[in-house]
């Protein structure tokens, strides 16, 4: 794959195939951690970090362990194991050597361990038969799409916090409606053909 096609793949992963609005992965943190733009951005950064690293590591595990042993059908289990261990390892590493980054990401890292968005990025990489470089780029781009979605939504929610909606719509119902409208806006991108 050439440099140009990697860029196209990343663009498509960020906007057209957006993890939240087009594929509906990672809805839990999307709704749970999107009350303030600051925390949403922190969550997005943590996801970006983990997804990029795990994209490369799970690719290596698949190519060098599962394929030779003919255990491709166990990739889901293997990826969960690898990602969980990896996130724990990264957390310890950051805490020791980059405390400032640990404080920014720290509380979000354990949450991501079992996040389906991270797992699905690894599985999609395998499904699409990406190379190592592509796997890392795909992980990075998918996570950037996630970050974009959650940060934009947090902005919407912080404005909604001061609105005065009818009693029945207060809180979660209105949040879901806003998420639906935002997803609809993002669906415009799906018309773009490469």
């Amino acid at each position: 794959m050439s440099f140009g096609s990697i860029l196209l793949m990343m663009f498509s992963a960020i906007l057209v195939e957006n993890f939240i609005f087009a594929k509906f992965y990672g809805c839990c943190p999307f709704l749970g951690v999107s009350e303030h733009p600051d925390t949403a951005l922190g969550m997005g950064m943590a996801v970006t970090f983990v997804m990029t690293v795990s994209g490369g590591v799970t690719w290596a595990v698949y190519e060098f362990l599962l394929v030779p042993a003919k255990l491709e059908y166990l990739k889901t289990v293997a990826f969960i194991l690898v990602i969980a261990a990896l996130v724990q390892f990264i957390e310890m590493f950051l805490r020791r050597f980059i405390p400032t980054l640990y404080q920014a990401l720290g509380i979000y890292l354990p949450l991501i361990t079992t996040n389906c968005a991270v797992l699905s990025a690894a599985l999609l990489t395998v499904q699409n038969g990406y190379s190592f470089i592509e796997a890392i780029c795909f992980g990075l781009a998918s996570a950037l799409g996630f970050t974009l979605a959650i940060t934009v939504f947090a902005g919407v929610r912080s404005r909604m916090a001061h609105a005065n909606p009818p009693e029945a719509f207060k809180g979660f119902p209105l949040t879901l409606i806003a998420a639906g409208l935002l997803a609809m806006a993002f669906s415009c991108f799906s018309g773009i053909q490469f």
Binding site: L65, A69, L71, L74, V77, A78, L81, V82, Q88
Partner: peptide, 17 residues
């Protein structure tokens, strides 16, 4: 084989952590 490989993986990750 899968059982052995995954057990080995688990033990390996455990030791590394």
């Amino acid at each position: 084989l899968p059982i052995l490989i995954f057990a080995a993986l688990g033990v390996l990750f455990g030791i590394v952590l």
